[in-house]
Amino acid sequence: MSESRRDFLASAGKLLLLTGPAALAFDFVVSGRAQVAPGYSAREHWWGMLIDIEVCIGCGKCVKACKEENGVPEGPYFRTWVERYHVAGGVSEHPDVDSPNGGLDGFRERYRAGDGAKSFFVPKLCNHCATSPCVQVCPVGATFESPDGVVLVDKDYCLGCRYCVQACPYGCRFIDPRTNTVDKCSLCYHRITKGLTTACCEVCPTGARQLVDLKDPKDPVHEFLRTHKVQVLKPQLATGSKAYYNGLDGSVR
């Protein structure tokens, strides 16, 4: 940006007498950086999540921690949840799937060992798609992809039209009955912008969930992605999902 344009913007900003968050954001216009928290520059990150089905034990701690950390309402509302798959004969178009209370209280044993089926847990959350179908359909820009690759909600701007809920192929969105606006996984944006990991990753005892920064060359995710066969959910929908699953079975929807 040229000096004169910067001067112009700075003085225009003073003229407009912006206050509060607007003024804060305006500083970043001038600096040309998308910055949201002190010392954090959104342009330097590109967030995603790595989920290792091979080591998930279905304890449900992630679901509980998410509800706690993000104040997710009780009942059938989940920013993250865990599903249990039971695939008879090893291959099936119709796996037996359950997720009692989103897996919040863990899973009681339902099956017998040696019944000839395979069984495993699949944690789910917002896939933070790079070309999100939900963002595409929002009529007003109340949900968006942040510069650091997180799909967020502007809950003070959301109409509550529910079009995005319809557009999400993964069932990751719900209407918060307290605010009548949409809610979803924010990848603990309030945490990751402070250098912390997400609540679900913080409590995951086996490392089945890992927050990854695809722009950080030191992130071990790059080595992991090089050495493992990973897949995203519903790849045929080309949503640009950034939730990478290791050991994903073909029966998982």
Partner: peptide
């Protein structure tokens, strides 16, 4: 992008 930049800060 097509959103209020203040929403970024609000989410933090």
């Amino acid at each position: 992008g097509h959103y209020r930049p203040s929403a970024l800060a609000a989410n933090t």
